[in-house]
């Protein structure tokens, strides 16, 4: 699941994931409210699957990424889902805040396309090949 309000970034991330031979489905939502509704299967998301992994932008409309992260990690039914904060921010304050809110990791989104592809590939390699995700 990808939570990203910038259509360009979402498109690029999707392309990067496609390059790495998709063995999974990527669901994109573009604001924090949609993210929470998707995860709680509310409204139009009643049939949404529970994602194995969440890539979460920090700056989102309606409900920002910090709030989304806090809500996921305080929810007994959702907190096990690994959340990677994936944001343009490099601010130390955001990094600390994210870990304190129990983000599984914080990754700064590079502005360069080649770098972005490389990073998305690394995320994919590590989380889907090395890590054991909850079933």
């Amino acid at each position: 699941m990808l939570v990203e309000d910038n259509p360009g970034d979402a498109k690029l991330a999707l392309e990067a994931l496609k390059v790495g031979r998709l063995r999974y489905e990527v669901h994109v939502v573009e604001d924090g409210e949609q993210a929470i509704n998707f995860l709680r299967r509310e409204g139009e998301y009643a049939d949404a699957p529970r994602p194995d992994l969440i890539l979460l932008d920090f700056n989102l409309p309606k409900k920002n990424g910090r709030q989304v992260l806090a809500e996921i990690k305080e929810d007994e039914n959702l907190k096990y889902i690994p959340v990677m904060v994936f944001t343009v921010s490099k601010a130390e304050e955001d990094v600390l805040r994210a870990y304190d809110l129990r983000a599984n990791c914080f990754i700064t989104k590079p502005s360069e396309i080649e770098q972005l592809f490389k990073i998305v590939k690394s995320i994919e390699d590590f989380w889907l090949n090395i890590v054991k995700l909850p079933a």
């Binding site: 990690k73 907190k79 096990y80 889902i81 690994p82 129990r102 599984n104 990791c105 989380w127 090395i130 890590v131 054991k132 995700l133 909850p134 079933a135």
Partner: peptide, 20 residues
Amino acid sequence: SRAEEDVLKSYNLHANCYIS
């Protein structure tokens, strides 16, 4: 451990990641 229970329990306890 590859036990699903250990995996889930660890993530619920806020392990950053779990590797067998």
